[in-house]
Amino acid sequence: MNAVITVVGHDKVGIIAKVSTLLYESNINILDLSQTIMQGNFTMVMLVDVSGANKSFKEISEALVELGKEIELTIRIQREEIFDAMHTI
């Protein structure tokens, strides 16, 4: 099962390191990653495979939100299907 992680906020040192460490510890594989500066904001989008994860989706989501609070960024994880459904026919 694939999911999309979005990270938005002020750019700073170590964002990718911290997010990917959390994912590594949860046994989540990163399939694709892109980052850019949109309207002055750091934005990162990751496509990940959560099927081998050692935590439930809810726990992963809560851990990411917690990490987001810690490093003052908004981090979300949503299943990929919602974006597919809304933007592709």
Binding site: T6, S34, F83
Partner: peptide
């Protein structure tokens, strides 16, 4: 991967 613009449009 899905277009970033589409992802943020949904959000």
């Amino acid at each position: 991967m899905i277009d970033q613009k589409d992802i943020f449009a949904t959000i």
